[in-house]
Design a protein around this nucleic acid. Structure first.
Lengths: 214, 214
DNA sequence: TGCACTTTGTGCGTCGTTGCACTTAGTGTA
DNA sequence: TACACTAAGTGCAACGACGCACAAAGTGCA
């Protein structure tokens, strides 16, 4: 038997590696500059890849950036999932689920993510044409996570979960906006305090509802 | 003008990088095991390269190993060259040149190189067919270095330099043999002392000649 | 000796990166 | 407006790594 030394498909692995290099390079550049401000040439050089290869893997520069966002959101969702999965998943009531989510939200370090996405959103508005489509990415990720969450917490209604999660996500977006307006996306101790404060208010509001007296 | 981001020829650079990876892997494996005892599959995996690629760059496993030796010898020669070049090149006499070389020999850390080559030579003898051709590499490197040395030290006869250098190289080979027999190629303090002692005797012998009383 | 198995080295087709010319479009400048 | 320049994105051919089948030779074992 003539056996090969490598895993089944080295070619596919190499391809994935090149793709990964491009994404990593884009990610690094965005973090360094606070927003996606670089040419394809720059990106290719940073990724140690030919300029042409960038367009072999991605339809456009915006595509690269959008994919970078997706990755970042996915990582955050993973973190969130792990945080909620570790708790005993409540008693099956929607109150139990809410507490779970609230706790996870407090435990996860969201400001860096918000700052990252904010940089891209800002750049999106700077020139005329609509770019990146980061809102789409955000929405899609939310929906995906919502259905997954519903499947995991088998006790309660799927609709209940969907409404709760979308409510939370929407709230996070509002919190992010305010936080950015007040701190400029800085990541120091003060801005963290601001973030925690806003997050607390969000959680309280969602818990008690908008018209609790009725 | 449409300009490319990379250096003139990225393709050539990649090719060289693959070749380098193979040589580095071979070098590492030889050092780890004391001798070239590994299959092409192993080498390829270590180099993070397809098995086929090894044979695209080298005619055989022996070729890889031989090239590794050449590299190692080249590095040593570079070190030697640097050591002799730093001194004022003597007064042009062959005595001055000899002192230069003797000093350089004492300053360079040769035992690791000797141990490295010894491992390959040992493996060469273990099975029937002649392998590697490391002696050829050694001889060729010596000659090349000799002519180069002659060109640099312009004052004295080229023949003089050739005879001196080949004498020294031959002596080093003898010293190496004795050193290996007495220390087994170990690289501890004791074996270093043995090396220095043998080297001193070599230098004295060459300096004074084999029949100084005549 | 016969047989199974491993490893070396080769031939050849496939695939993905690369290089390059080219089109399109945005921007600055005279 | 005209012109130069920069950058995005595409089409296409070439190059080299890769996968695989295969022959040849070595090795261990019954």
């Amino acid at each position: 038997m003539t056996f090969q030394n490598t895993a089944p498909d080295r070619r596919a692995e190499l391809k994935a590696r090149y793709r990964q290099a491009i994404l990593d390079a884009a990610d690094a550049l965005i973090r360094e500059r606070g927003k996606p401000q670089f040419s394809v040439d720059e990106l290719a050089e940073r990724a140690d890849v030919s300029r042409r290869t960038v367009f072999n893997h991605f339809a456009s520069l915006d595509d690269v950036i959008m994919t970078t966002c997706t990755r970042m959101l996915s990582a955050t969702v993973d973190e969130f999932r792990a945080a909620t999965a570790s708790s005993p998943a409540g008693d099956g009531s929607s109150e139990g689920l809410f507490d779970e989510i609230a706790t996870a939200l407090r435990n996860i370090d969201l400001p860096p993510v918000v700052a990252y996405l904010a940089g891209i959103l800002t750049a999106e508005g700077e020139n005329g044409r609509s770019q990146h489509g980061i809102s789409d990415v955000f929405t899609r990720t939310t929906e995906q996570f919502s259905t997954e969450m519903a499947a995991r917490t088998n006790a309660i209604d799927e609709f209940e979960v969907a409404i709760l999660l979308s409510s939370v996500m929407n709230g996070i977006a509002v919190v992010s906006g305010h936080w950015l307006a007040r701190t400029g996306g800085a990541l120091d101790a003060v801005s963290r305090t601001v973030w925690n404060e806003l997050l607390d208010r969000l959680i309280v509001t969602i818990r008690t509802g908008y018209a609790p007296s009725h």
